[in-house]
Design a binder for these strands. Sequence first.
DNA 1: TGCGATTTAATCGCGCGCGATTTATATGGG
DNA 2: CCCATATAAATCGCGCGCGATTAAATCGCA
Lengths: 162, 162
Amino acid sequence: MGPMSETSPPAPQGDPLDQFLCFSVYATGLAFNRVYKPLLDRFGITYPQYLALVALRGADAQTVSALGAKLHLESNTLTPLIKRLESAGLVTRTRDKQDERVVRVALSDAGRSLIDDALGCIPAALLEATGMRAEELTALNHKLASLGAALRSAAAPAGRAG
Amino acid sequence: MGPMSETSPPAPQGDPLDQFLCFSVYATGLAFNRVYKPLLDRFGITYPQYLALVALRGADAQTVSALGAKLHLESNTLTPLIKRLESAGLVTRTRDKQDERVVRVALSDAGRSLIDDALGCIPAALLEATGMRAEELTALNHKLASLGAALRSAAAPAGRAG
DNA sequence: TGCGATTTAATCGCGCGCGATTTATATGGG
DNA sequence: CCCATATAAATCGCGCGCGATTAAATCGCA
């Protein structure tokens, strides 16, 4: 993203980067990670692993591709991450009998209880860290989601007007 | 972030992750990167390097710490990044004569003309990729910036109520 | 049936972020 | 003056993201 409103001749502002929406997204992502880190360290998982466990909680025995569709990641990122979760005993990986190409990933009992525990306290801690009202965050969430969707379709290689 | 509005009993929605603001920030960050990648490849730089060059354009001969304050990064991340920019001939690194501990980073002529060229076309391409109006993006930018600031102060180790 | 095209994961290399540590320089108190 | 402390940057290891490639299984079609 670039300077958004070119209609600002007078003040040079704090920093040029602050005019970039992409930078706000980038920096807020870093900030989220820093808030999550100490909370997730107590569970021995990373932030991407936390997201994967949340996604797995939604539906069990998902393929790597299906999980990737939810997380917007591909096997080159997911396979090593899932193997680390497997080493930690939090998920199981099984080749599909019908189609040996696909690997199905499921929460183990330990994984399920870990993510349930985590969801019991972490979201509340995060909500407090934002210092904002839930409805305000929901609105922001929706706007960001549609921005993300627009960017994803713009980044898609095939068939776009423009 | 967690489920934001617990006031939604009926629909299980698309995916649980979509209820997490942190995930929208994370996924939108990934999406921004994917839009930037082909644009920045033509200049031979990465997205963090692009941000660093933008920050350097704002004020020359900055210390690593000052640059880090703008980017919300520290020397463990910045030093290697800056060295890559130096190898590419885009910035210069010089030890401060008054205080030999500090390193001052400045754009080279090549770096300045590269970032000027990049800013000449990339922000417009990004604006188009969002498919949103500039004023809407500006509003989103401000909300995200204050969210980021809140998270950063919550993540700061010392002296907080709560 | 056979065999190329497609699909699904996995592998590899590189550039971040970052916690932890190290090195080098500067500063201040006895 | 000397040494403890502080500060700035650099180094190291690990876990992502991801482009590119590979391996293996399935599908399709003659």
